[in-house]
Design a protein around this nucleic acid. Sequence first.
DNA 1: TCAAAAATTAGAATCATTCTAATTTTATAC
DNA 2: GTATAAAATTAGAATGATTCTAATTTTTGA
Lengths: 131, 131
Amino acid sequence: MTKYEKAIFEIINASHEHLTVEQVFEKIKPKYPKIVLATVYNNINKLYKNGQIRKLSTEGFMDRYDRMDKHDHLVCKECGKLIDFNFDDLTEILQKKVQNKVLYYDLQVFTLCPDCQKKKTGFIHEKTPLD
Amino acid sequence: MTKYEKAIFEIINASHEHLTVEQVFEKIKPKYPKIVLATVYNNINKLYKNGQIRKLSTEGFMDRYDRMDKHDHLVCKECGKLIDFNFDDLTEILQKKVQNKVLYYDLQVFTLCPDCQKKKTGFIHEKTPLD
DNA sequence: TCAAAAATTAGAATCATTCTAATTTTATAC
DNA sequence: GTATAAAATTAGAATGATTCTAATTTTTGA
């Protein structure tokens, strides 16, 4: 692992954020001001192909990269914000439902995040009100 | 609904295929040879925004468009091929797990399709063998 | 029938990503 | 430690999917 590959891996793993290539680029710059965007692409692709990071493709938003540890995502339909949540035994449940060997899965549950909720209703609700 | 919008909607709904914009363009051409790619983009975006078709974003593959009726997807990790399957009460299960109101979800279960399976092993298995 | 609105077209523009070739850095062998 | 090969990085051009703009055509409905 080169210093850049290591730094990028750590940036993606350090937080529970879900960063785009551009955002990783912005985060690595302070420490390595000489780095170039293509290097970030190269290393992110390498980490992804080696199964060291996850790629999240969400309808309407740019690809984002994430840690490998098992967890699922809530996605704000409006702003794309991702929030982690856990559906612990989903892999086994899925394996029972399908013939093929389940290698992994990607579950994205679309909702409105609190901010976008507020913009729509003008109020913050503790819980989403019933329609 | 204009004739193009209608034709595109029908192409996407007619089959259980999962078509890219380009593929929809190829499918509509025989009937409407004058149509232009931008029109396909315009109408697909309109249908999508109006909730009349689904957009499937899969890591590593181009966006594909699909019917709205509730179903889930197996995705071949290698070639991107999509196969429908049903996890009937997943919406309700998810709603019990998360605070926010579940608007909809996208579940993609990654496997190897029979063809890619074959390329890897040289054999077709009725069921995926245990590792 | 005419005016206004909407849809379509052609092609330019955009922008994320990849590619190419040159350069630099790292690893390996002598 | 130095030379050599391999790998990584760089700069910037190229690519390619998608969007945008402005002009034109079609549809609507007064």
